[in-house]
Design a protein around this nucleic acid. Structure first.
Lengths: 250, 250
DNA sequence: GTAAACGATGTGGTCCAACCACATCAACTA
DNA sequence: TAGTTGATGTGGTTGGACCACATCGTTTAC
């Protein structure tokens, strides 16, 4: 339907020309993850545009998680192709939440949807399951000494994030993983603030620990349906306890 | 956990400073959809940065579907806040597909997941259902005269897109809608090219028409489960017929 | 009086030339 | 041989200039 070649006759902003050139290089495999873009000045000369326009294009690709720019010399320097869709999707969602056009409730609901699916589709032999089990052990270790201040809570939540992401990764769908991660990232600040609303953190932590073990057990027991249901209840329970209002279900 | 105030002591690239300033304005409601950003030169002076840095920030926001820049004077001019997450998510996914780090099969699988959920959660009284029904009527009208060339096929596919998006919107979750649309957009070129692989377009079109009616009927019949299953079969069937290989299911 | 033409104003779009900070690596020096 | 030093090349930032465009007054011609 569409050619890979670009019609340069149609009007196009200069930085978009650069953008399309780079996207073509990616599609044709002449540029791939780990590869390096020509230097900004070089690229500007090659494409007969100003360095400013090249830089605008690179900025966009950077925001989209496609490249990473580094100053100086050596392997860390230059503009290299990466692939971090999660960060890009996350900031996109976060910005649009800020504009009040993406309700947090919708994000939570979507997270439940994706994560339930992931739980139901985890391969029992996925290596990420071992990681998840290890994370649960670590979560059992922290938080028991809650008199030390808030640090254990943050540690616990950080492990919690990694546990959920590990399960998502174990399902083997990169798009679902990326979207899951981005949803979490988008409401991370929001969710963090909610933690203060919890009436009894120790009780909540204990419950979360137990639910995590239950989810993992269901997965290891090859009971995807139960795992999905447990995950849904787990997430929804947390947000409800922290005071997020859910929209009325049909 | 996190303050909304930014620590300007930490190192930060200049355009990110602008980015965070604007995001703050959005979060605090001092800037909302429909509102206009200060002129680039003004903003640069206010934030004590160069216009170039302001422009780089605006480019990013534009790529993220948060603002729209327009030259000239009047209501269409200036940089105004919009909210088009679908476009941003779409180009993000498309770029990462180009880097070979997001398999098309994963995108299709995710689309099936989201769209099935949407079909199961459509409110029977959603106004989008009427739109969907109208679209089906239009699809019945086009394509019957396939001797005219490729135009009817494109018309049919365009209506098909709108039908699926209408169903997604009818579920009432903006995040799911946006993601659905972006997934479709990301593989639009790919899917379009696949159409040429179809052995018998007329037969395919007839089948698609029948399946669409079946899906809509199931929804109107309040049978969400059946609707979800039909949608899944509908999408997977199309891609399978067009030659997309699916990964082995567990 | 009305309508067309014109110019002032303000917007984003593009380009250039210069300078900075940084990281490496080669040449030089003690 | 070990340390210093400078050359090189990368992205980061700035100021200024000019362009195209769209509007809205004012002026002008009828």
């Amino acid at each position: 339907m569409w050619s890979n070649h670009i019609n340069y006759d149609v009007w196009m902003r200069t930085h978009q020309l650069v953008l399309h050139w780079i996207e073509n290089q990616l599609s044709e495999g002449q540029l791939s993850v780990g590869g390096r873009l020509p230097a900004e000045r070089t690229l500007a000369e090659q494409l007969k545009v100003s360095r400013t326009s090249v830089r605008e294009a690179i900025r966009i690709l950077e925001a989209l998680g496609v490249v990473r720019a580094g100053v100086g010399s050596g392997p860390e320097a230059g503009t290299v192709v990466i692939s971090d869709p999660t960060a890009a999707l996350g900031s996109t969602l976060r910005l649009h939440v800020a504009t009040q056009h993406l309700p947090v409730a919708d994000i939570v609901e979507t997270r439940v949807l994706l994560e339930s699916w992931a739980a139901a589709h985890v391969r029992p032999d996925a290596p990420e399951l071992a990681t998840a089990a290890t994370l649960l052990d670590e979560m059992d270790a922290v938080g028991h000494s809650s008199g030390d201040g808030a640090a254990p809570i943050d540690d616990f939540l950080a492990l919690d994030v990694r546990f959920h992401l590990a399960l998502a990764d174990a399902a083997g769908n990169t798009v679902v993983s990326a979207m899951m991660g981005s949803l979490r990232e988008a409401i991370q600040g929001y969710a963090g603030r909610l933690t203060a609303n919890l009436p009894d953190w120790d009780a909540t932590a204990s419950r979360l620990r137990a639910e995590h073990h239950g989810i993992l057990a269901a997965i290891q027991n090859n009971d995807g349906g139960r795992a999905a249901a447990l995950v849904a209840a787990h997430i929804e329970g947390y947000y409800r306890e922290a005071g997020v209002k859910r929209p009325p279900e049909a």
